[in-house]
């Protein structure tokens, strides 16, 4: 096998880790609250800006800055839920989609207003690892590891804690859970906070590799939706697997042609698969 192709594949598996984290967050919110957050990638953008300003402008140490960014985005998740999602909880699904779409417009333009359209980099230079004549980005390796750890922690949380069990129960049947004495509103808030925290974590990992600008959400937002739908909306493990499938298609397509065509390939693959398996790859 071609060494460059292998390098592209490995680097993409590593990036797949971050996408998987975002897919988990979005799937969690969808599974529990039954609302698709179109603006999820733009909430990540907010986290990236928070990290940029804390670390690069105000000189807060990186780990502390990351922690503050994660907590901040988590709070943002709760605020979004209270202000935008809660009022439309009983509206038709499409109105919910459109309300979060309005949020997308708002976040992108507000970021443009506040920060301009400049590309900003947090300026952390991580070494590039050389491994058997292949170059692998250290930033991506860290992102991948942290992404995996995040996924495992989320899994344990959902499986082992009381509130995690309640979250899983609500995803299965939201009417019965109320009868069992679970406060739905509280669970929704916790879920939004966790979804936000995952977005914040992903923001920290992405900020290590990419410049932040107001429209960065548009570059990976659609890909995350594609991943979630392919895995089956609400299906965590499906989403996790789909993020690696999609990132491989993009890697291999990008290797033989350029990045845009590889995305065209990935989106076309998505459309075709929606016709073959309309409820996602792993639907039973």
């Amino acid at each position: 096998m071609d060494i460059y192709l292998l390098e592209a594949i490995i680097n993409r598996i590593l990036l797949g880790g971050v996408l998987a984290l975002l897919a988990l967050g979005l799937n969690l919110i969808f599974g529990v609250i039954d609302v698709v957050w179109i603006a999820y990638a733009d909430i990540v953008m907010c986290g990236m800006y928070a990290l940029y300003f804390l670390y690069a402008e105000y000189g807060v140490p990186l780990p502390v800055a990351c922690l503050i960014a994660i907590i901040g985005v988590s709070i943002l998740g709760v605020v979004v839920h209270l202000l935008i999602i809660a009022p439309v909880l009983n509206s038709p699904p499409l109105n919910q989609l459109l309300a979060t779409g309005g949020l997308l417009f708002f976040l992108q333009s507000f970021a443009t207003l506040l920060f301009g359209t400049d590309f900003r980099n947090i300026g952390v230079r991580l070494p590039i690892l050389e491994f058997a004549t292949m170059y692998i980005s250290f930033a991506r390796l860290i992102a991948f590891m942290v992404g995996l750890i995040g996924a495992v922690v989320l899994y344990l949380f959902l499986k082992r804690t009381y509130i995690g069990t309640a979250i899983r129960a609500i995803a299965q049947d939201r009417d019965i859970v109320g009868l069992m004495g679970v406060d739905q509103r509280r669970i929704y808030l916790v879920t939004s906070a966790i979804g936000g925290a995952l977005a914040g974590l992903a923001a920290c990992l992405l900020a290590l590799q990419y410049d932040v600008h107001p429209f960065i959400g548009n570059t990976f937002g659609p890909v995350i939706f594609m991943i979630c739908v392919l895995g089956g909306l609400g299906n965590m493990i499906g989403g996790f697997a789909a993020s690696f499938i999609i990132s491989q298609i993009i890697a291999i397509g990008g290797y033989y042609s350029n990045t845009e065509w590889s995305y065209v390939l990935a989106f076309t693959f998505f459309i075709v698969l929606m016709f073959i398996r309309p409820r996602g790859l792993f639907a039973r």
């Binding site: 459109l98 309005g102 417009f105 976040l107 992108q108 333009s109 507000f110 207003l113 359209t117």
Partner: peptide
């Protein structure tokens, strides 16, 4: 730049 769309975004959410 962006001020117009910011207000626009808020109006959209309120509208929906």
């Amino acid at each position: 730049i962006g001020a117009a769309n910011t207000i626009y975004g808020i109006l959209l959410v309120l509208c929906i």
